[in-house]
Design a protein around this nucleic acid. Structure first.
Lengths: 337, 337
DNA sequence: GGCCGCCACTGGACCGGTTCAGTCAAGGGG
DNA sequence: CCCCTTGACTGAACCGGTCCAGTGGCGGCC
């Protein structure tokens, strides 16, 4: 049972392949009567365009790529990516674009994948996520000539189109809020130090603390896992000048930090305030519920997808600044003491 | 800067397209000297096979599909899928297969996607996950003639190849363990009632309790979210015959249940024991750490991918029973009282 | 009435590979 | 010395679409 082709339709309709092609693509060149007849036949025999044949004529591949460079375990634990993908998807599927996904071991493997996808004509463009400082992927993608959207700060995106949020503003908002509550010793448990967004948040945190005249604003870097979050928390809470508030770079570390605090018989929020970056359901499920930095991740992904599709259509719509994550206060933050 | 084609290679090597094709595919028909020369040129000009052109000759699309039918929010919260995808990926990328992912609204949209992908020659096969009771996707996929692996119980897989784990055995192990600890009133907070694996776990739970002469073994169904998990827990703990142990169908509900118990001033584990299905890092990060049903999800995905690739190669290797989730006792379970 | 323009459609080249039938030269056997 | 086999390679068809250059008929206009 072969897949029907336009030749089959042409035969049954008694017209040429060309006429069928015009009819099916809504192009002029056939009468409305013939078009209707052809469409009816196509529908009846269940014809679908063979994308391979279409792609061969220089047309689009109608797919975009996303390579993720994190181990399975941490990927699973990060609601961020799945939500981002959902958002990207929503936009893509509306335009019948497919998403090619690949989980890779490192950046060089990621670039190999992009080279292959682009060289094979499998994708029309791609997303770059988790940018590093001086990330080699940016110049390499530029020289590939593949349309690409960077999900991250413009400063690291080179000539690629960045879609980003002002993390610095959110950090500042958080520190201001904690200081307004009366906190003077605030620490930060950050993610991987080489990631661009980590350095941006680090800088904003240090700046905000300095500007407000705070001291002892330590930053500890981790790999985003609960274990490292717990270890960092233990270190901070064991120091002589114990912080009264800790800001975490993701929710799983914040939850781990909460557990450590409770283990050390500290009351949250009166002895220790906790703020989590990324406000997943997890934050609302623990006691006390965690103050979080909320953002609409699916929308973020959707915007990135829009930008990429525009880019593929030849329209460089420039950088897009998404709304900054906003502070959602809950039970885990309160005045110290 | 056009992508190089075999015609370019042929011109530079002074041979025909056919010879280049033989050389590049390791087929007989060219001398070793010529083959080496052609490979060198291909390498030099950065040639990659155009999959569209290859696919046109009836070759494989070198991609498989996965459509997920859950809202963005719950998808994000389920480490399961991301880990499954990582596992699938590991297997696929080793064979240079790509994964097409799409998040869809419902089963009919999912089948539309599969029809399209298969009809367009975009994929060589697909995965079916989250099977429902009397799932229409199974007969539809069968009649499509598309190779497919069902990630779920054989009883619902029809003639498709199932990859599954014996959830019933894990439920039994859990109930036996709780009863051995001295529990007599055990409840279950389950997921969506129409999912096949929910009905299987439900049945196994009821059977195990009945066999051991337990009474009051209520099952409450939820949508897997923390909120519904919390609500179900509240209902159970407010009943006159309060359970001394609750088994949850995922980790996020278990954590929510833990929070509810603590809110109601119940001590975990002495007043209430908690068991979570799927042992993500989340279980180890809360206090007390949760007893969980551990399984190697990436391996599960990898096995499913192996089965699918074999199927695409025309080898039906039959159902594959993966190892059943095994109980990992932690601080959230203890004798009651 | 003749010419022009337009519409509806045909035929065929083309995209970049694969594959098959065929060619040609070298070499071996009788 | 001739025939046959074998190896190395060529040329062309083919996959399923797109799209361009024609073509033929018909209607309108001068």
């Amino acid at each position: 049972m072969r897949r029907p082709t336009i030749a089959d339709i042409a035969r049954r309709a008694g017209v040429s392949k060309g006429a069928v092609s015009y009819a099916l693509n809504g192009q002029p060149g056939v009468s409305e009567a013939t078009r209707a007849r052809i469409l009816a036949i196509a529908n009846e025999i269940g014809w679908r365009p063979n994308i391979a044949a279409r792609a061969l004529n220089g047309a689009r591949a109608h797919a975009v790529g996303l390579a993720l460079c994190r181990p399975a375990r941490t990927l699973g634990m990060e609601p961020f990516f799945m939500e981002l993908i959902s958002g990207i998807e929503a936009e893509l599927s509306a335009r019948s674009y497919a998403l090619l996904l690949q989980v890779v071991a490192d950046h060089s493997a990621e670039m190999t994948v992009y080279h292959r996808w682009w060289g094979e004509g499998r994708v029309d463009g791609a997303f770059l996520v988790d940018l590093h400082v001086e990330d080699p992927r940016v110049p390499e993608t530029e020289s590939l000539g593949m349309p690409a959207v960077v999900i991250g700060h413009p400063s690291a995106a080179g000539s690629l189109v960045p879609v980003w949020a002002d993390d610095g503003a959110s950090v500042k908002e958080t520190v201001d809020y904690l200081v307004a509550l009366g906190h003077r010793r605030i620490c930060r448990v950050a993610g991987l130090p080489r990631l661009v967004h980590t350095t941006i948040r680090d800088r904003a945190f240090t700046d905000a603390c300095t500007r407000l005249g705070l001291t002892g604003h330590t930053i500890l870097h981790t790999d985003y896992t609960g274990e490292e979050g717990a270890r960092a928390t233990r270190r901070l809470l064991s120091s002589p000048e114990r912080p009264t508030a800790i800001v975490y770079d993701n929710d799983i570390m914040a939850v781990a930090g909460l557990a450590v605090a409770q283990e050390m018989r500290l009351n949250v929020p009166s002895d220790l305030s906790i703020v989590a970056w990324d406000d997943s359901p997890l934050c609302q499920v623990v006691r006390p519920p965690l103050t979080g930095l909320t953002r609409d991740i699916p929308a973020y992904g959707a915007h990135a997808a829009q930008r990429l599709l525009a880019l593929i259509d030849g329209v460089d719509s420039g950088p897009l600044e998404d709304e900054a994550p906003r502070l959602t206060p809950r039970g885990s933050t309160a005045p110290p003491g």
